[in-house]
């Protein structure tokens, strides 16, 4: 079994990490954080440390508690119990300072649809009190970086979802934040917008920035994140390296396309060669469950020896559901 544990690494002997000084190596420190809406806990006894310089992926569906967590981190709502520190600051009392040093992208970013893209950025630069010359320079850069040159003079009301999101992320980065809190930055985006958003997240990290990325897209988490945590009903149910997490599930299922009339022969050949796998079939498809990746060659060999014509063998790409399923399965074992 791979190393996915809900515990975070212990802090020992880091220079400059004594109690009087702020520990620069931890960007977000969440301890026993809980938030109730009425009776229901939206976030339930959450513990998490995000290290400065990493992209941490918070995986979970809508309602898992991601948005509530972000809102508590920026001081927009107060926790029912527990505590959080962001860049060494307390969100409850120092929310405005946190927001001044943090870029936030919410799921429904409020941009002014009557203003142009550039005007929206200028408006926020003014709001953040950025000196006009510096702001202009920064806005030019962000418009270039997010490929908004051709649309900067268009009113945001005319923007596609992809353009809208690129502008929203540009706005989140406008005041040169040290930390980005991103709530589902890419669902529903066109490929160009997704690529630009991913590139900018990587670039931000390469410059030493820290990112908390909420997503339900496993592939995105695997591509961008140094570590991921899986959130369900307000609780962290697993944490670790994204590849470890996905390989637990991704490696287990293979789809084989064969000629339908060879189905029985295929099932027999597979069960004989690799005992213990579960097999389901629909027409010309044979789905093999519980097959580790390194046994795929054995599967192919068994089918070839049995003279079953094989058109396609494909390990199934796993989704967040598969991760949940595998985690629950391994916990109840």
């Amino acid at each position: 079994m791979t190393s996915v544990s809900a515990e975070t690494a212990k802090q020992t002997d880091i220079p400059g990490a004594n109690s009087e000084r702020v520990d620069v190596s931890i960007a977000i420190d969440i301890q026993n954080l809980t938030r109730h809406y009425g009776e229901e806990p939206a976030v339930n006894d959450l513990n998490l440390q995000v290290f400065a310089g990493e992209v941490f992926g918070l995986l979970g569906h809508n309602g898992a508690g991601k948005t509530t967590t972000i809102r508590m981190l920026t001081g927009l709502i107060t926790p029912t119990s527990g505590s959080a520190q962001v860049l060494g600051l307390d969100p409850t009392f120092e929310g405005s300072e946190i927001r001044a040093r943090t870029g936030v992208l919410t799921e429904t970013p409020a941009l002014d649809s009557r203003l142009t893209g550039r005007e929206n950025l200028a408006f926020f630069a003014d709001f953040f009190d950025i000196e006009p010359h510096r702001a202009r320079h920064r806005i030019d850069f962000l418009i270039d970086a997010f490929e908004l040159q051709e649309h900067e003079q268009d009113r945001v009301g005319t923007y596609s979802r992809g353009l809208h999101q690129r502008l929203a992320l540009a706005r989140a980065m406008l005041h040169e934040p040290e930390l980005l809190l991103l709530d589902e930055p890419t669902p529903g985006l066109d490929p160009v917008a997704t690529r630009v958003v991913h590139l900018m997240i990587r670039a931000f990290r390469s410059e030493g920035g820290t990112v908390l990325l909420c997503t339900h897209n496993l592939e995105e988490a695997e591509r961008l994140c140094d570590r991921v945590g899986v959130l369900e009903r307000g609780q962290m149910i697993a944490m670790g390296n994204p590849r470890d997490l996905t390989s637990r599930v991704a490696d287990q299922q293979v789809e084989v396309e064969i000629a339908p009339r060879f189905r029985d022969r295929a099932i027999e050949a597979i069960t004989r060669a690799i005992p213990g796998v579960r097999i389901a079939t629909v027409d010309h498809l044979v789905r093999v469950d519980g097959l580790p990746r390194n046994r795929i060659p054995d599967l192919v060999e068994a089918l070839a020896n049995a003279r079953v014509p094989v058109y396609r063998v494909e390990p199934r790409v796993s989704s967040l559901e598969d991760v949940y399923f595998a985690l629950h399965e391994s916990r109840s074992r």
Partner: peptide, 28 residues
């Protein structure tokens, strides 16, 4: 990754020009 700041070391020092890198935030 530990030197770049993407991974948090559990102990140690890394001196560059007599400054300890690990005591600096990654963006510095």
């Amino acid at each position: 990754m530990a030197l770049a700041g993407f991974v948090r070391p559990s102990s140690g020092h890394v001196f560059v020009d007599s400054r300890d890198l690990l005591a600096l935030p990654p963006n510095e």
